[in-house]
Every structure is written in C-alpha cells, then in structure tokens.
Amino acid sequence: MIDRRSRTQRFFEIELPAAILIVIALAPYAWMAITSIKPTADIARFPVVYWPDEPTLIHYADLLARTTFPKNLLDSFIVAVSACALGLGLSVPAAYAFSRFGFFGRRFLMTQFLTINMFPIVLMIIPLFVAMRSLGLLDTVPGVVLGHATFAIPFAIWMLTSYLNGIPKELDEAAMVDGASRVQTIVKILLPLAAPGIVSTGIYIFVASWNEYLFAMMLSGQNVRTVTVALQMFIGEYTIQWGLLTAGGTLVALPVTLLFLFVQRHLIGGLTAGAVKS
C-alpha cells in the first residue's frame, strides 16, 4: 500500500496510538506481574509499594514446586485445544450449511442456536451436572471438553456464517461448475478464503475454554483440574494467597499471548495475503 504520510504524521496517527493501546492493554497485567515479585510483606502495605526493594521469585517457586499448578496448566491446555478442535469440527460444516444453502428450517435453527445461548449458564449447571453424571463424564477430559465446545458452538456458527457470507458464492459455484466436487470446493477454495475467520473463531473457542470457570469447577475434580479452578483455590475462606494468585495469574496469560503471536506471524498474515491476491 502506498503511504503518503510523513514520519511525524505517522508517529502521531499510528505509532503513538498503538503505544497507548499497549499501555491500556498491559497496565493492570503489569501491576499483577509486579505484585507477583513482591515479598509477601510488601503486597498489602501502606503507602503503596510501587517496586519492591528486594524482588523475589519465591511465589513462582512455590507455585511450581508446591502446588499442582503445572499439571493444571497442562490440563487446561489439553481441554482448550480439544474444545477448539471439536468446536470448529462441529461448527464449520454447520456454518457452511447456513451460509450456502437455503433450506427448510434454516432461520428457525439458526435462531435456536442463538436462543440456547441466552440462558444464564449459572442456572443450568446443576441440571448439566446431573446430565454429565448420567453420561459418566464427570471429572473426565471429554466431559469438560464437551461442555466447553457445545457452549461455544452457537457463537462459532454465527461468527463463521457471517465470515462465509462475506465470500462471494460465485467463487465456489464457479469451481463446482468447473467439475470440482463439493468437498474439493470446500477444502481448496472456501476454507483458505475463510481462514482468518476460522482462526479467529478458533482462538475465540480456545480462549473461552481457557478462561472458563463455572463448568470447569462443576465438571472437573481430582483427575482433571483446569487453571481457573486451581487459581480459585488460592482464594480461601479467611486468606487470599496473593503471591501465588498473582504469580499464577501472570503465567496464565502467557500461553494465549504466545499462541496469538504465533498465529499472527504464521497464519493470518500469510493466508490473507494469499487469499486477497486471488
């Protein structure tokens, strides 16, 4: 793209706002990270301690060595990746159907997918618990994954449908006229074009699962325990383990951020560049 703006103009119009944006996004997180390296005595002190005299990694050491946190991170990762795969696997075909076909019950079904998501989840967790118990899925990875994936499906279908609607139908129709099968058309034409949308929907499901607490609390137990539940363990009846909590909170955000950095570099950029040129 041609850019006729001067350097100063660019600085004020792009780089400075971008820097402010990063500060907004990071400030509370940074405060948590700083808290996590304070000795316990400095955490709740008046006046506020901005930077500890003796930064310490003791909370991280305790977190990794004396709690189940590392295993919980792994559990969360397995659950989130599986929920993401399952969620996309179910919602991409559904979104394709909604976007490319006019059929009986289309609007009804689409609305139903939305309606079902409007119920406050909190009231559904006890029936859900009973249902999972009868399916024998309590405290198993598939149980939590199924919970996260199904509750993400409606969102995913809707997002994907609107991305797919943005891709001209004429493209795949032309391909099919040229003799490509439906599956070929989907795999070769539609999916690459919809890739940014699919990736961001995938990230959406991943993050939703990564951060989800209520289902994870109800459906998991000793075998599977996600980080959100593990973090909640640091908030007791009479004390909050601030050191452990902030250390855990600091670590929890890292995988998603790194994932995003990776996706950013290797998927979205390349794929859109390819798609746009076609």
Partner: peptide, 23 residues
C-alpha cells in the same frame, strides 16, 4: 512493532475473569 502489538493487545482477554475481578 505491529505483530508484537497485535499479540499484546489480547492479554486482557487471555486472563480468567476471576483474576481480572480480583486485580
């Protein structure tokens, strides 16, 4: 620093609500 900025902006979203509430 675009790709870094794009990744850092998702930090708030990458945190569980419980942590955000407490912080």
């Amino acid at each position: 620093f675009r790709s870094l900025a794009r990744a850092l902006v998702v930090v708030p979203w990458a945190l569980p609500s419980v942590i955000i509430g407490l912080m």
